[in-house]
């Protein structure tokens, strides 16, 4: 009875499958839906965008006309603006995130709540972020101007988002606000991974306060800061909606970013080819930045003798 029961356990057709083949089939089957969906939704657009970037508006033949247009006077200022937003907002984020991470890593009351609140901007929809900044910086009724005027700092109200000199800094601040949570979490996580024995040992060796920060903590955070900077920089570089909602690229093109330019080429000028060329440039800049990060990391690891 027992023996026959046992036989039947082995008797099925798949008993000839080895564990490795079984895992192979199972792995492919389980991964397939996700990968198929992503590839379908990524490869097709990718092929299409490369192809259409090679076709000049109104023509049918393939050529590099759209790319030579990139060298002209419309594209380069936008590239510069996007780079300024990417770099500027990341600089602000790191300047804010490092001290914040250090502060929230201390013994204090309600640390969990503070941590949650710092990461909150991540969850606020861009439309609400934009509404808030528009309202705060409103020329006539915004809080910034009201306080500035009431305290006598300003003699005339400022149009933060309408002034060619002020629009860019304002847009940078908005991007930094939205991007802070990601940068904060990455840096905070790295800080938590710093073994407390290191700090204890440093204290014994006489490193307190600032020297502890300079020789122990910041070197430990270096990789995380680099990672956060590149990730957040790429994200802000390629971000469309916040600029679109705050300034629409104005005033007089001072905040015209690459994503805005692409959008305008597509929906204002109805020039798919040029829009595609701009889109590919955005992607390539991101890839380059990631490659740079990867390269820097490998160099750093080599230097420290890690594999």
């Amino acid at each position: 009875m027992r023996v026959s029961e046992r036989r039947s356990l082995f008797g099925q057709w798949w008993s000839s499958l080895t564990l490795d083949i079984y895992m192979q089939i199972a792995g492919i089957v389980l991964v397939f839906p996700a990968i198929f969906l992503l590839l379908a939704l990524l490869i097709a657009p990718f092929t299409f965008i490369i192809w259409s970037s090679l076709i000049k508006k109104g023509e049918t033949g393939l050529g590099l006309a759209n790319y030579s247009w990139l060298l002209g006077r419309t594209f380069l200022p936008s590239l510069k603006n996007s780079l300024i937003i990417g770099v500027g907002s990341v600089a602000l984020e790191i300047l804010a995130a490092v001290p914040l991470a250090l502060l929230l890593n201390q013994r204090l009351y309600g640390r969990g709540i503070f941590r949650a609140l710092v990461t909150l901007p991540w969850a606020v929809p861009t439309i609400s972020v934009a509404a808030s900044f528009l309202w705060l910086s409103n020329t006539n009724y915004g809080l910034f101007n009201q306080i500035g005027l009431a305290s006598g700092i300003l003699s005339l109200p400022l149009a933060f988002l309408g002034d060619p000199k002020l629009a860019m800094p304002a847009v940078i601040v908005a991007h930094a606000w939205k991007g802070l949570p990601l940068v904060f979490i990455i840096i905070f996580a790295a800080l938590q991974s710093l073994p407390s024995e290191h700090l204890e040992a440093a204290k014994v060796d006489g490193a307190w306060g600032l020297s502890q920060l300079r020789y122990i903590i910041l070197p430990h955070l270096k990789t995380a800061i680099g990672l956060a900077a590149v990730l957040s920089g790429i994200y802000n570089f390629a971000l469309f909606d916040l600029t679109f909602l705050l300034t629409g690229g104005g005033p007089s093109g001072t905040t015209m970013t690459l994503p805005m330019l692409e959008y305008n080429q597509m929906f204002r000028s109805l020039d798919t080819g040029r829009a595609a060329a701009v889109g590919l440039t955005i992607f390539l800049v991101g890839v380059l930045a990631l490659a740079l990060l990867f390269w820097l990391n490998t160099q750093d690891r080599k230097k420290r003798g890690l594999r």
Binding site: R6, L9, F10, Q12, S15, S16, L17, T18, L19, D20, Y22
Partner: peptide, 13 residues
């Protein structure tokens, strides 16, 4: 008496 190479664990008893 059974050679179990390749037999998955759930069928090895």
């Amino acid at each position: 008496e059974l050679r179990v190479n390749g037999v998955p664990p759930q069928r090895r008893d």
